[in-house]
Design a protein around this nucleic acid. Structure first.
Lengths: 338, 338
DNA sequence: CTGAAAGCGCTTACAG
DNA sequence: CTGAAAGCGCTTACAG
């Protein structure tokens, strides 16, 4: 038994298929009794309109494409969840694709979006850089970037206020009395690393604390590299008393290295992260960090995209403030020195 | 400048649009020079075939729909990642939708899949129960379930061998010398809870350990309820010396309750989880648990779906073995008693 | 090897 | 209020 079409219903209802189409779309043109009959028949026969056929003529798919670096990344997943929620509220569906931070794959993915005629695109943590920007702007489809990692600003974007948040958490460490504060950054050249480093430096400067280049180490944002970077810092002649990490994943490795080294957090050393992943509440000790409102950022990105799809052309760049979450991984330094 | 169609290219190449269609699909019917010319023009004009138009005639969309309870759930995200990877290898795209474990939403989502004419569907952790099963079987599209939570077996599914894995981890606790082992389960009536509880009981039975009903408590699979359940267990006149939790999230709460109660893991109490979420490596102490090969399970589900889409009708029920991962949260009980 | 024609399942002016 | 007709962008027998 094949899927019924509008014509099958027309036949059963003894009307033209045009009338069925109108009735199903709730057109006021159709007599209400006729509509009634048609809808009943459609219901009974399990009719489902063909999105492909409809979109072919309306030139609208109610589909939006979301490119993510990796859906298994907990950071990304919550943004997608926010996008999906807002999309759903406006009758859009989400078509998702991983880029795995691979540029070839990312291009294929975007091409796939074009072929599927998505009405809009959201790219999270786009990291493909230069190649990608012109391609994006060539596209005939509105695009919103979330946490764009290009130095060049994109026209429509939602991102966390990295500089301010980073300055705030560094200030927090300074207020606790720390003077030797390390930063474990990311070496991949992300804009967010540049900005977080900037906030860190700015906080040091405003408190007249010296900037010590050897307190800045770079990893790859994963726990293992955070561990290695921390071991390195601990071996310094004059080790830091606090470590601010580019993200929570890095902080995870830092905590491990410190514990392995027989030291205590925050007794011997304070550690701060960035992101407020779910697990930040469950580390030992729970992690002081910056909360990125990921779900809301996803919603905002989708909201922005909705405006663009409705014809708005105004520039939309949102800087979302991060929130300092103080937990137990930060405390005053030991009072063993002058 | 509108998107070029097959007709625009035909005009430029001075051939019929049928020939263009063939050339682009690499038909051997077309003279290779002609193909060459056509492909070049298509390339230059940035032509993208319309998936909607094509699928309307081929009746194939190369789209598969994936229903998840919640994409932000780390457990789910890795399954999706495996699905996506395998799908991509076979030129399928993934169309994703959250059900939020809400049956109305789940039904809408599935209806959306139908309208978009997906070629196949994968449902992860389907929890909608009775209503859903007949609906699924009505559909004209092949469906594979991952970690199906209906008591009734579905024809095509991939799931973890809950009973065996649970028995294995309980045996591990028994071998360490534990005799008073608690189980914190899930109260929502998931099949996986029933099976894990079954494995737990079976391990007790085969070692002639008494089954103590008061050692079985039920939560909602989240940390907070794990914490509450554990506090309850600790207040028993004769508290358990080990706790096996339905999942890692529950174990997270258990660890917290034990720490708050001033006790040590594994010194005073052993804790085991299930799932091996990423964070299980980073709890304090790192968690003994059962690894579910989520990525592989996603790949397997997609592979199964591919077979079904290619016309196979044979029953495909895969029980994937879990792997016992022994970390530091389990150890022999204190030797303070006979 | 190529083209003309029909058709996939819809929507929407246009006429009545 | 309703129907006949054209068309969205493709694919694919059918003829040549």
């Amino acid at each position: 038994m094949k899927r019924p079409t509008i014509r099958d219903i027309a036949q059963a209802a003894q009307v033209s298929h045009a009338t069925v189409s109108r009735a199903l779309r709730n057109s006021s043109l159709v007599k209400s009794e006729t509509t009634e009959i048609i809808r009943r028949i459609a219901e009974e026969s399990g009719y489902r309109p063909s999105a492909a056929a409809r979109s072919l003529v309306t030139r609208k798919t109610n589909l939006i494409g979301v490119v993510v670096t990796n859906i298994a990344d907990p950071f990304v997943a919550e943004i997608v969840s926010g996008i999906e929620e807002m999309a759903d509220e406006h009758a859009y569906s989400v078509y998702l694709a991983n880029s795995n931070a691979d540029s070839d794959r990312e291009l294929r993915v975007v091409r796939g979006f074009e072929e599927r005629s998505v009405d809009g695109i959201i790219v999270t943590s786009s990291r493909v850089g230069a190649v990608y920007v012109p391609l994006l702007s060539q596209m005939r489809v509105p695009i919103v970037l979330v946490n764009n990692q290009h130095p060049a600003e994109f026209t429509h974007s939602v991102m966390i206020a990295n500089f301010q948040a980073s300055r705030e958490i560094t200030r927090h460490l300074i207020q606790l009395g720390h003077k030797r504060i390390a930063y474990i950054g990311d070496k991949s050249g992300y804009q967010s690393d540049t900005d977080r480093f900037g906030g860190y430096r700015s906080a040091l400067d405003e408190s007249d604390l010296p900037f010590t280049p050897e307190y800045v180490v770079h990893g790859d944002s994963k726990p293992e590299s955070g561990r290695i970077a921390t071991e390195h810092l601990l071996r310094l002649a004059q080790p830091p008393t606090a470590i601010f990490c580019y993200n929570d994943m890095t902080a995870l490795g830092a905590l491990k290295a410190i514990r392995t080294g027989g030291l205590c957090v925050p007794g011997d050393l304070s550690v701060a992260g960035f992101d407020d992943l779910f697990l930040a509440q469950y580390t030992e000790p729970p992690l002081t960090t910056i909360r990125q409102p990921r779900h809301e950022m996803g919603r905002l990105a989708m909201e922005t995209l909705l405006k663009l799809m409705n014809g708005s052309t105004s520039e939309q760049n949102f800087q979302v403030p991060g929130e300092l979450i103080i937990r137990q991984s930060t405390a005053p330094p030991k009072a063993t020195e002058p």
